[in-house]
Design a protein around this nucleic acid. Structure first.
Lengths: 210, 210
DNA sequence: AAATACAGTGTACACATGTACGCTTAAATT
DNA sequence: AATTTAAGCGTACATGTGTACACTGTATTT
């Protein structure tokens, strides 16, 4: 009942997952990975792959799930830092940029599969990003006392901007340039926050005038 | 000298380009296209491909160039419409959305190869988008009398938002939902414009106070 | 009119891919 | 202790791939 066997199976399953993740890079997308390559990297015979996943697609969806997990950890981390005080926007961007630096491949996976070729993948990625967006919306709505729709539009725009900046950051080696990018991103988020606050206030005034 | 031969060659070259373009879809990315498939679609023997391109990569870069051309046509069209009066932001978004509807595959190519696997492709796409961004920056700077850096940040954010919305639009069939997306996008662009105008004004005030 | 260049063809090859199938070996169940 | 289950392996095969090479026929040049 202890499950020596199940335990071992889980272990090689992880081997496959890690093998796939480690092969991702700027030059290598998940869809360009072959079942045989992944199996080889994991130290398995090609046919052993099937004991764990029916498909490369199934492995891919598992990776997307992992990426979503990483994203949620990021949020928690950012929230902790924010609780200690400081500019919310700045802390968020900096936390995000750290994630990119340490988990570039996971992030690349999300970015690529978002506009990728498999409907299942796209749906999975979009779900993770939407979850992220909704969390941010709730936070904004509460923290800044915003109109619900306005909060959503702000959250949506902010996530778009940050993800795009993250994508750019992946291609930048120079530390100074990266910082410049961060600063610009922060400024752009402030633009959005400013516009959103104003619209929300205007809507509220209109409601009260009734 | 008339070049019956060169003319014919150009013709089949186009055949290859069009074959590749027509095979792109939501389910099919350029990188998943094989040389043989493209040649077959064009009605050529596989080896004839080499008379026109050394590589699939070379064909791909040609497609990116075409996409850039389309983008520039878009800008011209938007400018013409703007000259006739109306909200600049609204007209721009609507024009862009029309492009997406009529040239979805070309646009998909840009989106995908931007975070794609080939450095050459990425560079080419980024160049096209940067050109687009710079044009917008110049326009904003002049039309709204903005600080140069602020104009750039606004242009950059706006392009990001619009491209992201375009990517979303590709997956939406429902006409009503698409309109909703357009409206949200317009609103988001206004957020950004508002924040940018404010920062620019603040910077100018600071300069004059000296 | 003769010679040349060259777009397009067909054959051929080495290679990588996914996966079907039967085997081995050790854990789990009876 | 005997039986069953299942993870992992090796072999094998059909299929798709890029491309080398020798060819044909015709527009172009000489």
């Amino acid at each position: 009942m202890s499950g020596v066997r199940a335990q071992q199976k889980e272990k090689t399953r992880r081997l496959l997952i890690d093998a796939a993740l480690s092969q991702l890079s700027a030059e290598r997308s998940f869809s360009s990975l072959s079942l045989r390559e992944v199996a080889k990297e994991a130290g398995l015979a090609p046919t052993s792959f099937y004991r764990h996943f029916t498909d490369m697609d199934e492995l891919g969806l598992t990776l997307v799930d992992e990426a979503g997990l990483t994203l949620r950890q990021l949020m928690r981390q950012a929230r902790q830092r924010i609780a200690k005080g400081g500019s919310v926007i700045q802390i968020s961007v900096e936390t995000f940029m750290e994630l990119i630096e340490s988990n570039g491949n996971v992030f690349r996976l999300l970015l690529r599969e978002r506009s990728g070729t498999s409907a299942a993948f796209r749906a999975a990625v979009i779900r993770e990003i939407r979850y992220f967006t909704m969390e941010l919306r709730d936070y904004l709505q509460q923290a800044n006392d915003l109109d619900a729709e306005v909060a959503f539009m702000q959250a949506n725009a902010a996530v778009t901007i940050v993800f795009s900046a993250g994508s750019d950051a992946l291609d930048i080696d120079d530390k100074y340039e990266r910082e410049l990018l961060s600063k610009q991103t922060i400024q752009q988020l402030r633009f959005i926050a400013r516009g959103a606050a104003e619209l929300s206030a205007r809507r509220k005034a209109a409601r009260n005038a009734k």
